[in-house]
Design a protein around this nucleic acid. Structure first.
Lengths: 337, 337
DNA sequence: TTGTAAGCGTTATCAG
DNA sequence: CTGATAACGCTTACAA
């Protein structure tokens, strides 16, 4: 009769196989020395009983839980969910498991999420949005929780940042507009004010200023389709109607495009050129065919997981720079050359 | 000097507070008897040291890990990611944590995902896609892992199924087409063949047959926008071009609509009426304004988490029926009355 | 109310 | 190669 109440344990397997529990443990530990004979006896008993190693107990002693926390807000958003998919896939492939923790857009919820990660003794936490307070970063450090910050700013020891060439991409966007013959430039962004959003905004504005061009600038609400819709209305209502809008996010861009088409009967790209950022799936849909910059999600996932596997890279903060290549489609006049 | 190498433990806190570790444990156990005095001493020490209860160790003994596994394929898809958002939020609110496990569309990966869930001693697993082999269901049962099957068929003891009124919704779709004056009906679906997809297909076809109406029927690929695009091309190429298409999924519907507009220059709903299912966010975007059936994601999440909290409802299989209300927008002629 | 001690399911250490 | 035995960090009788 296996176990008292719940799951079957190594003791049960050992009893059935007629060996010690140590033998069972060794059978399920990759680099351990067991004779073929006992090994097969154990395997057979385990199979019959339906035994699965208890990773909680294992993690307790080995101090390697295999748990990695994914922390962020707006998890159902196209870009976010894609990033989560990539991360969970790669974590699984490396024998780990992801726990997913939702936050709202406030930093304090990021802090409680990190505490939760510590309580489950996660090996690392990947922060997708929000910014942990520095006292919490310290707490994480003290509890051996490594931090991966994606498109965030704060740098701490034992943590890594992954950043994109946001500002440069924004400059490329501006150049593309000019090459397409656009002259009345506009910028549409949310009020979220995250580091990457800010970099895109500033990159665009700085380059325009350098060239002596004015930019109609509008910031509104969270990063969402609805915000894009509202931004589009505001921008296109103006007397001097813009003929090009750089949106700091594809979601915003979709909203702007729909506002232009369905509320102002404008044609894209003839009356208005639009460029976004992220390359969410919808950007490639026929209804939008949005020219944008592709978030290198696979590369981001790879960088994060590789860093985790890099056991002792815990010396000082690190920054990994990746680039977001342009995806040219049909929302800008011309062919991009 | 706290801990050897890693995180700070109850022992450290006890030492600093000058109490036993049991006192520390009690302080962090909701219904335990500790004097105000020791409690505050413990709290202070814990704060200073940055102590967080180790849920792994706690789960080892209390047998309540608080872990729930979310298992499914195509996690980055709009409907799936929304469901995941709701589930993680509700799980968090009930003091639990979600681990996310990706599968491809094969059932065998669902099995390995469930084994992973067992290894982490999850209290339950929510299966969003694929179907666990019945031997694995048995394995789960033996290891105390409860199963929540969303829109799946298999019923086992200690598990619950959540189902929608798919067939009825399909009948309503058909009636709506007829009321709008459409006569050349078509059905577009993927080849996934999941229970809910099948129910929608069969509901539509059965109702049409009952009324003696022929239906042009096309099934193709996975459930995706690209499949929708291809389905649209196949359907609209026909000599007897359909004037109404019921798509078993919004993603398919978006593809069909884009094919109709951009590859056949048709106007929706004038030339073609379309109805989908799921009510993904994009369905409400101006570019689509798709009439569809809303997945009651909040209700699904609530039902799942409530059932988990229902401690001893482990007697026999249960089925929970929920309804997907119609969301009337602009992809069908008329006003739906 | 408090502390002591046993036990949860593992792995690591150390004899044999 | 194998089996005792001691951790790991926690909860929970049990006794004080």
């Amino acid at each position: 009769m296996p176990g008292r109440k719940n799951s079957v344990s190594a003791k049960d397997v050992a009893a059935r196989a007629g060996v010690s529990r140590a033998a069972v443990s060794r059978t399920f530990t990759p680099g351990a020395s067991v004779s073929k004979e006992t090994r097969s006896k154990v395997l057979e008993a385990a199979e019959a009983l339906g035994y699965q190693v208890n990773h909680l107990a294992r993690g307790l002693i080995s101090r390697k839980t295999g748990i990695v926390a994914l922390i962020g807000a707006d998890l159902a958003t196209p870009y976010r969910s894609e990033l989560i998919r990539v991360l969970t896939e790669r974590l699984q492939a490396s024998g780990r498991v992801a726990i997913l923790i939702n936050t709202d857009r406030s930093d304090s919820t990021v802090d409680v999420a990190l505490q939760q990660a510590i309580r489950y003794r996660a090996e690392a936490a990947v922060v997708l949005s929000g910014m942990p307070e520095s006292s919490i970063s310290e707490l994480c450090h003290r509890n051996g929780l490594r931090l991966v910050l994606i498109n965030r700013d704060d740098a701490h020891t034992g943590s890594v940042q992954i950043r994109l060439n946001d500002a440069e991409a924004a400059r490329v966007a501006l150049a593309s507009f000019l090459r397409a013959g656009c002259r009345r430039l506009a910028l549409a962004s949310s009020q979220a004010g995250t580091p990457s959003l800010l970099d895109r905004e500033n990159g665009f504005l700085a380059e325009a200023e350098k060239r002596g061009l004015p930019v109609l600038c509008e910031r509104l609400g969270p990063t969402s389709y609805e915000s894009g819709l509202a931004l589009g209305e505001r921008l296109l209502m103006r007397a001097e109607r813009p003929d090009a809008v750089f949106c700091t996010t594809d979601l915003l861009a979709c909203g702007v495009m729909d506002a232009a088409r369905h509320r102002f009967s404008l044609s894209i790209p003839n009356d208005l050129s639009v460029i976004g950022f992220d390359d969410i799936e919808q950007a490639s849909w026929d209804a939008y065919a949005l020219t944008t910059f592709r978030q290198p999600v696979e590369e981001i996932g790879a960088a994060a997981v590789d860093w985790l596997s890099d056991g002792d890279a815990a010396d000082g903060p690190r920054i990994i720079h990746l680039t977001a290549p342009m995806a040219w489609r049909k929302s800008v006049r011309g062919n991009g050359k």
